[in-house]
């Protein structure tokens, strides 16, 4: 099945024509399957058909003929994305069901549409080798590798594969962009890239934390490291779903969505009470850099004092709340 995108001069929006049965005749006459009402087109202009080598378009002795790569030709072999002129009309050929809009491709993470199987195989091998290497790195950074860890790594890879398969499948169904054949692999490359970045940042974070003494900047880095993956996926989803309308709109919506999610994550991260009791970066190293003048224990006692007054308030609030409830119950 082929889709023709026919552009008239000085008009941006194309006419889209699906062709499902062959041969298919093109011309100005209404007898033709594809009728092009343009003075540059002959009554019976051309025919699209296929043979053992694939699809082709053949001139039927028209006045203006078929122009491919600047030359007039009798037969033009049709490839994916090839462009030629029928009379003065520009025709783009797309294989497959979906209409492949150029603006859409630009927003894809890995904007590669593969033309042959070899590349796909190379990519998948690359992907899994990267995943394996990353898993080993991840495990090594946390613990020296032994038998137990080894099994763990295998499990990580297998489960990672399953998760990726599901997510990429869901992604491609959602986006409706790709030719079925290529869907998984483009998304695999996308996930490989981001898992790379994710694991690297996440594992080296504690090391970086040695040198970050500012609490908020640490929290920002941690949040981004933890959620960049998620953020990027939401951004992509947003771009994909708004692609039909206009690029400006997409940019605004996706950008604001990104900001909102980032903000929400940051707020929830800082508001989570129990997190205050866990590690928050800034371990005192190197020791000599901390001086007593600036970090007197007195500061600690002051904040404890504040906390105690806060707890007192919480306690009184709780007591008042209970009294109210009691009164309510008594009335009932």
């Amino acid at each position: 099945m082929i889709t023709l995108k026919i552009f008239k001069q000085n008009i941006v929006t194309p006419t889209v024509q699906k062709i499902e049965t062959f041969p298919c005749r093109i011309g100005r006459s209404i007898k033709n399957r594809v009728v092009l009402d343009d003075p540059s087109i002959s009554i019976d202009h051309a025919i699209i058909n296929f043979d053992s080598e694939g699809y082709y378009i053949q001139d039927l002795g028209s006045t203006n003929g078929i122009i491919f790569e600047g030359e007039r030709k009798d037969i033009v072999r049709i490839n994916q994305n090839c462009t030629f002129y029928v009379g003065s009309l520009r025709v783009e050929i797309i294989f497959g069901e979906e209409i492949l809009d150029k603006t859409r491709i630009i927003h894809l993470p890995a904007s590669i549409v593969f033309h042959n199987q070899k590349k796909m195989i190379i990519l998948s091998v690359l992907y899994f080798s990267i995943l394996t290497l990353l898993s080993y790195l991840h495990e090594y950074l946390l613990n020296p590798i032994d038998k137990k860890n080894f099994l763990n790594i295998i499990w990580i890879i297998v489960s990672g594969f399953i998760v990726l398969l599901i997510t990429s499948g869901a992604f491609s169904i959602f986006s409706k962009i790709h030719v079925k054949k290529y869907r998984l692999f483009t998304f695999f490359s996308f996930f490989a890239l981001w898992s790379c970045i994710f694991i690297l940042i996440f594992d080296f974070l504690p090391y970086i934390a040695f040198y970050i003494n500012h609490k908020t900047s640490y929290t920002i880095i941690e949040t981004v490291a933890n959620y960049c993956f998620l953020l990027y996926s939401t951004y992509l989803l947003a771009t994909m779903s708004f692609i039909h309308t206009s690029r400006k709109k997409i940019a605004i919506v996706a950008g604001s969505l990104f900001c909102i999610i980032q903000g929400l994550l940051f707020i929830t991260d800082t508001l989570r009470e129990d997190d205050n009791f866990s590690y928050q970066g800034s371990l005192s190293y190197p020791i000599s850099s901390y001086k007593r003048v600036n970090y007197r224990p007195h500061g600690l006692y002051n904040i404890i004092d504040k906390s105690v007054t806060k707890v007192d308030k919480l306690r009184i609030d709780e007591i008042k709340k209970r009294e109210k409830e009691k009164k309510k119950n008594n009335k009932m």
């Binding site: 928050q280 800034s282 970090y295 806060k310 707890v311 306690r315």
Partner: peptide
């Protein structure tokens, strides 16, 4: 009661910096 938590870096009199996290709650 509910608790309140905070953290602080402190250098004690032997010049040892200690990172401290704490939580306080009270009996109602």
């Amino acid at each position: 009661s509910k608790y309140d938590c905070n953290e602080k870096i402190v250098v004690n009199k032997h010049d040892i910096p200690i990172k401290i996290n704490y939580c306080v709650n009270g009996f109602i």
